[in-house]
Structure formats: structure tokens, C-alpha cells
Design a protein around this nucleic acid. Structure first.
Lengths: 146, 146
DNA sequence: GGGTTCTGGTTGCATAGTACAACTTGAGGT
DNA sequence: ACCTCAAGTTGTACTATGCAACCAGAACCC
């Protein structure tokens, strides 16, 4: 097998293994915010508000799933849904102060945990690694919102 | 914020985004084998058989979860459970021929999908990326089975 | 204007994956 | 022999998820 194929296989296997562990660690690290919720909040902060459909597209989730997650987040007071005056069908989602604050806390805790595993990495490697991930996750054709 | 912190945050965010998409793509790519099942089969092939407990530790899953997954895989004829003659408590898991064959098929399909996204990457970048992932996922202290 | 079609979102339903706790069986030490 | 620990299984409950059906507003076309 070519080295490239091996690398590709390794990449997909390792990414998957990471994913499993991420779910587990989310439970330990921040039981108050599920991994999905955390992810959605993070995206909302990053893009400074968007529609439910955008979240669904970005994370390859069904719109019903997003709808329910958002409902839960709204009930918890972390997210607000405002009707778009332009188009009454869409709900523009945004973080509340509480949402922002919890997100910041959890992000800190997660960052500390990740940092712990990365502490002996050279800064150059870290940045290159981050760059690769971004590059990998950026879809060439679809997902114009990114 | 320091560049390192930004990189760390990016790494964890991108890894998580990847995880969501991986689940979704698994459904499209190989409906006959869930992402978990695929992952477990892959591990069994890689380490050439192991105990259920090892799988649980490796993927941070509860042993009950693994037990059920393995039961399903066994019923599907993809995995065999042999009692360890040394220790009658343990079941040594292994792939059947059918398991190996399905795994190969799915791996090919997944590799093709991943490759599609990586086609314009330089070989050097691919290998470095793979290396980073392995390095990241290798736990410093625990998980001696890796 | 009045229909058809499209889009954003919600809700009903079914299913998969998961954890936790209780239990069973076998090993190992004392 | 007894106590304790380890591997697995099973009961139970919950969460995330997708699909299908639906509703409401927008866009388009005659």
C-alpha cells in the first residue's frame, strides 16, 4: 500500500477514535453542557448568530435535531430566538449573557484538558496541526456559511 | 490570547466538528455498518483480537455498551467470541472471514471518501497530519494496549 | 390576485447508542 | 474456605438522532 493511502487510513481512524473519546470526556468535563450543546453554542459565538438551518448544515444534523437542541438551550436560558423581521419564517439564534458565560467556562475547562495533552508539543507543531484540521474540515464545494 | 491557546482551541473545535460529520457520513457511506461497529471491527483487525474490556478502555465506552455491540456483531457473523483457555472469564474476540471482508469493503469506501477531500494535499502534509493525529491520540499514561 | 412550489421550523414516532447499577461467574490471594 | 477483584451480561432509563408529516411564511407564475 502506498504511503499516502496509509496516511489517509490513519487520518480517518484517528479522527474517529478521537471522536469517541470526546463524547466520553464531555460527560466528565462539563456534565452541564452536552457535547452537542457545547458545539452549537460555540458555533453561535463564532459566527455571531445564525439560523437553525445553518447549524444543521454545518454539523450535518437533521433540522429536527437542531430544533430540539435549540429548544432545550432556550429553555435553559443560554440562547435566544428572535424572529427575523425580513423573513418571518426564520428564527435568528443568538447567545444570551448566561450562554456566553457558560460557554466561556466550558471552553476554558476543555482547553485546559486539551492543553494538558499537548503541553510537550512545539508551538510550531500545534499551529500546523490546527491548520491541517481546519483545512481538512473546510469543504471545497458546499457549506457556504463557513 | 496567545497563538498557542488559539491553536489549541481550534484543534478541539475542529476535531469535534469532524466527529459530528463522521457520524453522518457513516450513515450514507455504509448503512450496513454503524460507525461504532466499524470502529470496533477496525480495532480488532489492527490488534488481531482482544478482549471486550480492551475495546471499552480504548474507546472510553462502558463495558455494557461494548458487550451489546459485540453481541450484535457476533449475531451478524462478523465476529467470533472464543473463551480464553487460560482465564475462563475472558472472551477473546476476533474477526470472521465475513467480518474481515466487510471491513475491507467499508474501509475502501471510507478511504475513497476521505481521499477525495485530501486529493490536493501534498504527500508530505498528509503524512505529517497523520502523524499529528496519532501523536495526539496516544495517551501518555493510560491505555497500555495501544 | 390566486394558485403552486419552495423554505424554515416544529412535532410525532421509532430507533440506536450509551451509561449506570445489579448480577453472575471465575481468579487470586489470605 | 472466604473475601475480593475482574470480565461480561442484562435490566432500565435517557439522549441524540433521523424520517415523515405537518404548518407557516415567501417566492414565483399565470
Amino acid at each position: 500500500m502506498k504511503a499516502t493511502e496509509t496516511a489517509v487510513e490513519t487520518i480517518q481512524r484517528e479522527m474517529t477514535a478521537f471522536a469517541r473519546r470526546a463524547r466520553a470526556s464531555a460527560g466528565r468535563l462539563h456534565p452541564e453542557l452536552s457535547l452537542v450543546s457545547y458545539t452549537l453554542l460555540g458555533h453561535l459565538e463564532e459566527v455571531d448568530g445564525c439560523r437553525a438551518t445553518d447549524l444543521a448544515a454545518h454539523y450535518a444534523l437533521d433540522k429536527s435535531t437542531v430544533s430540539r437542541q435549540v429548544t432545550a438551550l432556550e429553555r435553559a436560558g443560554l440562547v435566544v430566538r428572535r424572529q427575523d423581521p425580513e423573513d418571518h419564517r426564520v428564527h435568528v439564534l443568538g447567545l444570551t449573557e448566561a450562554g456566553r458565560s457558560i460557554l466561556a467556562q466550558v471552553t476554558d475547562r476543555r482547553r485546559a484538558a486539551v492543553l494538558e495533552r499537548l503541553e510537550d508539543w512545539a508551538a510550531e507543531d500545534l499551529e500546523r496541526f490546527a491548520g491541517y484540521l481546519v483545512r481538512y474540515n473546510t469543504l471545497p464545494s458546499s457549506e457556504p456559511e463557513e
